[in-house]
Design a protein around this nucleic acid. Structure first.
Length: 566
RNA sequence: GCGCCCAUAGCUCAGCUGGAUAGAGUAUUUGACUACGAAUCAAAGGGCCGGGGGUUCGAAUCCCUCUGGGCGCACCA
């Protein structure tokens, strides 16, 4: 597709001395208001070198430019040279590209098949999958899809929290107060109750804590009975998780969780020793990071067992050796910022130059109106319940509207679950937010259902048009402001994808998809599409088809479905 | 105490590596379904962009400082 900005920069370069086309391209902007043109060149920075007032410079440039192949006029407004593209030329270029590429519109090969690992979701087993986990899960999935779409070779890893002292606690509690039948009937609920019970009892009898640590050490040393129980808990938990992943349409390439690295810890300790990074402190082994303005990192407890951070170091080394990644992305809560700074610095100190390729992508905290979530205190909202309620509400709305009740189960799922995903991907990931039922169950305005509705509407028009989509149309028909705005947003789509991937920020894409939907709805309301004049109808149908196609590609990247009817 | 993050309309948030009158959604008021789906569209009101300094031709955006909030800081993950 033509890079219009590039073209304008080249034309400018012929008339502005001392700057390359590339430099000029950097300086080009998009005006705040489209009535001021499609691109703008601010002349303020040229004032010093040319020793003239910006409006004079702009005036001179504009008068020299006249018209060109791709723009019809360039004019000076307050020191800016504003460019107005030839709308029909622009629209033809964009729409042909979309129709030709179809599902691949926006795809690119900038990744050159380089390996990118995305670690996301990573719930703790034996604990409920709650609304706090949705962020990593949904944001991580979108980041994976974005990188996949722009040509990287991706690996999705679910770094399950399936190891650590907590399982010592679980086993102790199960042996004292639990039974097999209860676990089989309702695994996570029962296991969680053991965990809660443990903490209640440990308040009264602190020696239980030591007992739990001992049991975990046995697990680390592969004692058969402990390993058997742990494996059983893990399997039962995974069954429940896969149900939620199924609803969300999310898959992983690897479930190598923390336990997977349990036999790779010795090597990490040896390497740290070799590099003389270890230091004894109060009986434990630490890595001092004072020189880097970071708190010391505890890598081995006084009883010789390892910690979370040791496992992350082992995991990073393993991944480098196994996948030889170009980038190793971790979609993990911002609460763990320090933890990531610490271990990535340690990796660097160990002499691994690929430490710079490990990227922590943090996101803000989800809390409830009652306060921060606490599994132990039962203060949680289960993700499955959120999804189920969203689906149920969608179903009620469909019945009420009575537009299309075929496949109502399937459609309700697409929309209800889509609403939850979309909501999660709407804001900058770094922001904290308070979970609210009203908000996830609101389907109007900037929401998933709004975008899906727009898609269904576009699909409906195409069904009724009774004509093939063709790019052999009169593009002047699509030169109205509303049609042109829509084409411009469609044109930006591939760049938006690159930016969203580059900044690890799916919300950039989410916002843009909303913008396209809004522009489409405006066009839909402003102009009659299925007009009698077949030439006009043909052109408008082409734009509808391109918009619909782009919306679908966007939704797919966000991990959502696009229903034909709803 | 130290470190990191956040602060924009009543509410929820956009605002790209500084650029023209700070934008959406929601809520409120009002208008549009005998044209293609009203989960829609249009209009109105609503802002010392947390406060104060600074850099710059130009700051919501960059720097300093203060205030308010969140998160983290040794044997949990």
């Amino acid at each position: 597709m033509i890079d219009f900005k590039e073209k304008i920069a080249r034309v400018l370069a012929e008339h502005v001395e001392g700057f390359t086309a590339a430099q000029l391209k950097e300086m080009l902007e998009v005006p705040a208001d489209s009535s001021m043109g499609d691109y703008a060149f601010p002349c303020f920075r040229l004032a010093k070198t040319f020793r003239k007032a910006p409006p004079m410079i702009a005036q001179e440039i504009a008068s020299k430019l006249g018209d060109a192949l791709i723009f019809e006029k360039a004019e000076n407004v307050n020191g800016y040279v504003n460019f107005f593209l030839k709308r029909a030329v622009f629209t033809e270029e964009v729409l042909k590209e979309v129709i030709e590429k179809g599902k691949g519109y926006g795809r690119s090969d900038v990744g050159e098949k380089k390996k990118v690992i995305v670690e996301f979701s990573s719930p703790n087993i034996a604990k409920p999958f709650h609304i706090g986990h949705i962020r990593s899960t949904v944001i991580g999935n979108a980041i994976y899809k974005l990188y996949d779409f722009i040509g990287y070779d991706t690996v999705r890893i679910n770094h399950l929290g399936d190891y650590g002292t907590q399982f010592g606690k679980m086993i102790v509690s199960y042996r004292r107060w639990g039974n097999e039948a209860d676990v089989k009937a309702e695994p996570i609920k029962t296991l969680l109750s053991y965990y809660v019970k443990f903490h209640e009892e440990a308040e009264k009898d602190p020696s239980l804590e030591d007992e739990a640590r001992e049991v975990f050490t046995k697990l680390e040393n592969h004692q058969p009975e402990e390993v058997r129980l742990w494996q059983w808990f893990r399997e039962e938990s995974l069954k429940e998780f896969s149900r939620v992943y199924g609803m969300l349409g999310i898959e992983f390439d690897s479930y190598a969780g923390e336990s997977f690295y349990s036999d790779k810890m010795g090597r990490v300790i040896d390497l740290l020793n070799e590099k003389k990074l270890l230091k004894e402190s109060e009986g434990a082994q630490i890595v001092e990071l004072e020189d880097y303005n970071l708190a010391p990192a505890l890598v081995m407890k006084k009883d010789g067992s390892t910690l979370y951070i040791t496992r992350d170091i082992a995991a990073a080394i393993y991944r480098k050796e196994t996948y030889d990644f170009y980038k190793n992305i971790y979609v993990v809560a911002s609460q763990q910022n320090l933890h990531f700074q610490q271990w990535i610095k340690i990796i660097e100190l160990m002499g691994f130059d690929w430490a710079k390729d490990c990227v922590h992508v943090p996101f803000g905290l989800v809390s409830l109106e009652e306060g921060t979530m606490s599994t132990r205190q039962g203060r949680v909202v289960h993700l499955e319940e959120v999804l189920n309620r969203a689906v149920k509400q969608t179903r009620e709305i469909i019945i009420e509207k009575n537009v299309n009740t075929d496949n109502i189960d399937e459609t309700s799922k697409q929309i209800g679950i889509g609403a939850v995903i979309f909501q999660e991907l709407s804001n900058n990931r770094i922001k904290d937010y308070v979970f609210s039922w009203d908000k996830v169950l609101n389907f109007e305005g900037e929401t998933g259902p709004y975008v899906q509705y727009t898609y269904a509407r576009a699909s409906s028009i195409l069904r009724k048009a009774e004509m093939e989509v063709t790019t052999a149309v009169d593009y002047h028909v699509l030169s109205t402001d509303t049609a042109y705005e829509l084409s411009k947003l469609i044109y930006k789509f591939p760049d938006i994808i690159l930016e969203a991937a580059d900044r690890y920020e799916p919300s950039i894409l989410t916002r843009h998809v909303v913008d396209i939907a809004q522009a489409f709805n405006k066009f839909y309301n402003d102009e009659h599409i299925l007009v009698a004049d077949l030439e006009v109808r043909k052109a408008k149908i082409l734009l509808v088809s391109a918009a619909r196609n782009t919306i679908k590609n966007g939704l797919t990247l966000l991990g959502m479905e696009a229903p034909e009817k709803m």
